[in-house]
Design a protein around this nucleic acid. Structure first.
Length: 259
DNA sequence: ATGGTGGACAATCCA
């Protein structure tokens, strides 16, 4: 199976791009974050018309997650089943060919000294409770999405200068490591160990950040051990035709051999 | 020049 994750920053603005990419990429399951649309406005009809199944949970203007798939997902669930983590639409999951895909949009954090940053740390730690409640590390499980954390110095363009800023902060690293210790492997790193310069996000507020290679690796595909053993490749797909605005078109993709 | 952009949505909020 081929799975990918994509931060849409409005699924309505990126719909044709998403459908084009689905038709050309050979992707079976696409996890989308920041759909930014309430459920009654979600473009489900267009997606179904293009031949895909889709599940989603969203809210007006902010957040929102969805999963597109070539076959219908089983056991679809929205949220973490617990407050206050579920106050915002950030989690959806489903099962595809026996593999459970948990798609999350981790809170961005806004600023280190803001309440939103504290919320982010608690939210990330809450993911371990969620996995504890719902799964075991031996399950065929993928955790994918916009984690809003660059885990290692090689995952940002300027580790010394950016250390301590939002999305590259020791408290974030500690919280994410706490969830990882539950039983996850970073699938991209499994296939590209120690390689710097692989990014999924470039700040559009910085002029020419992509050309200047001022990137961050914030979007991830993590797998439990039995699932990671079946991964055959993982890469970042930024299509040349949209490299002027790469944040509009950067997918993290992974292939798994399910036998 | 305390800015730069993009999206939602209608004044700012979030990223």
């Amino acid at each position: 199976m081929r799975i990918a994750t994509f931060n849409a920053n409005s699924i309505r603005s990126r719909l044709s791009l998403i459908l084009d990419w689905m038709s050309s990429s050979g992707c079976d399951v696409l996890a989308v974050q920041e759909t930014k649309v309430a459920d009654d406005e979600f473009p489900a009809a267009e997606i179904c018309q293009a031949g895909y199944h889709v599940v989603f949970t969203g809210q007006k203007a902010y957040n929102g997650v969805a999963i597109l798939s070539k076959e219908p997902l089983e056991d679809v669930r929205k949220g973490l089943g617990k407050m206050p983590e579920d106050e915002e639409a950030r989690v959806i999951r489903g099962r595809f060919r026996g593999v459970t895909v948990v798609n999350t949009y981790v809170p961005q954090g806004t600023a280190v000294d803001s309440p939103r940053f504290e919320y982010k740390i608690k939210w990330i730690r809450g993911m371990r409770d969620y996995f504890d409640r719902e799964f075991t590390p031996n399950d065929m499980l993928l955790w994918v999405g916009d984690f809003n954390v660059a885990p290692e110095p090689i995952d940002v363009y300027d580790p010394e200068g950016l250390y301590g800023s939002v999305c590259f902060h020791p408290e974030e690293h500690k919280a994410l490591e706490y969830v990882k210790e539950w039983g996850f492997v970073d699938v991209f790193r499994k296939h590209h160990p120690g390689e710097p310069g692989h990014y999924t996000f470039w700040d559009y507020r910085i002029p020419n950040s992509f050309k200047r290679r001022m990137g961050w690796r914030l979007d991830h595909i993590w797998a439990t051990r039995p699932m990671a053993e079946r991964s055959v490749n993982c890469w970042i797909d930024t299509e040349p035709r949209t490299r002027e605005k790469p944040s509009d078109h950067t997918f993290v993709v992974a292939d798994f051999d399910l036998g």
